[in-house]
């Protein structure tokens, strides 16, 4: 009997690994292609690259800009918009979770609708306004625009976390003489840290991967972000797939690393936020 169950376990585990490898094959193919020497993609490449070649990562492109510049821009934009998101979303979601009145329902409704918005809906007005304010070709413009996606998402996730914290915790703090802000910073934020980690990582991922706002608001070469340059390069480089896949890898790799480290938090946090709303 015991033999049988352990054989079944082995079988299931093998199947699980095979499914995962097949499912994530596109990522393997992206990374290995990026390491191939120029032209190898045409000569019927095998499963493994013949040699490992890092040229695609280090060479300047025809605009005289290296991947490093785009990487730097992407970091600035995604970290900036994540900071904006956290500063605004953490207190707002606490407020929405803890107080109950008509305005809260309206507020929650706005965040829920905002979460569903297609970017194209606000893109044109933002472009017109940003042009007037000099926020075109300015990273701050992109940060502010990216936050229109990340703030509603973060609020929806964080609100569930704050709601699940027992009210007694705050009441005890208030009796101990803590004001609302002190209670919030000293107690509520630390207690909901796993939710904050989820919201923070997701904001970072979303802002990092944004193409449409960069595409619309940035046209100066040395300001562009990685996703934008990946899109542009597909038009300009056409068939240099090893370079295009190097760009893709640089877009994907930071997310891959952070996700693997934070997996438990992110998966738990997402399911809690998305299922419960």
């Amino acid at each position: 009997m015991k033999m049988k169950t352990s054989a079944r376990h082995m079988l299931l585990m093998t199947a699980g690994i095979v499914i995962t490898l097949l499912f994530l094959f596109p990522l393997y193919w992206m990374i290995t292609t990026s390491l191939r020497p120029p032209g190898e993609t045409f000569t019927d490449p095998s499963f493994f690259p013949s040699t490992i070649c890092l040229d695609s990562y280090v060479l300047e492109n025809e605009h005289g800009v290296t991947l490093f510049t785009y990487l730097k821009n992407s970091c600035i934009v995604s970290i900036g918009s994540t900071l904006i998101t956290m500063v605004l979303a953490i207190p707002a979601s606490y407020g929405l979770a803890r107080f109950k009145n008509k305005m809260i329902s309206v507020g929650l409704f706005v965040f829920l609708v905002a979460q569903m918005l297609p970017s194209s809906l606000i893109l044109t007005p933002l472009f017109v306004n940003f042009s007037k304010l000099g926020l075109i070709n300015n990273h701050i413009g992109v940060m502010l625009a990216d936050a229109t996606i990340t703030i509603p998402f973060a609020v929806i996730i964080l609100r569930t976390y704050f709601k699940d914290i027992p009210k007694e915790l705050e009441e005890a703090a208030i009796i101990d003489g803590c004001g609302p802000w002190k209670t919030f910073i000293k107690i509520m934020v630390p207690v909901s840290s796993s939710g904050i980690i989820t919201a923070l990582s997701m904001s970072l991922f979303m802002a990092w991967g944004d193409m449409v706002f960069s595409l619309t608001f940035l046209n100066q070469e040395n300001m562009k972000t990685l996703p934008l340059i990946l899109y542009k390069a597909m038009g300009e480089l056409g068939v240099r797939w090893e370079i295009l896949m190097a760009y893709s890898t640089v877009v994907v790799l930071p997310i891959l690393i952070i996700f693997i480290i934070m997996q438990r938090y992110i998966v738990n946090g997402l399911t809690a936020g998305a299922v419960k709303g």
Partner: peptide, 19 residues
């Protein structure tokens, strides 16, 4: 680990599948 595919920016997914 399979959830990674969901985290990958759409522009990269598009690039990989176009390839």
């Amino acid at each position: 680990i399979n959830v990674i595919a969901w985290m990958i920016p759409m522009v990269a997914v598009s690039g990989i599948f176009k390839y």
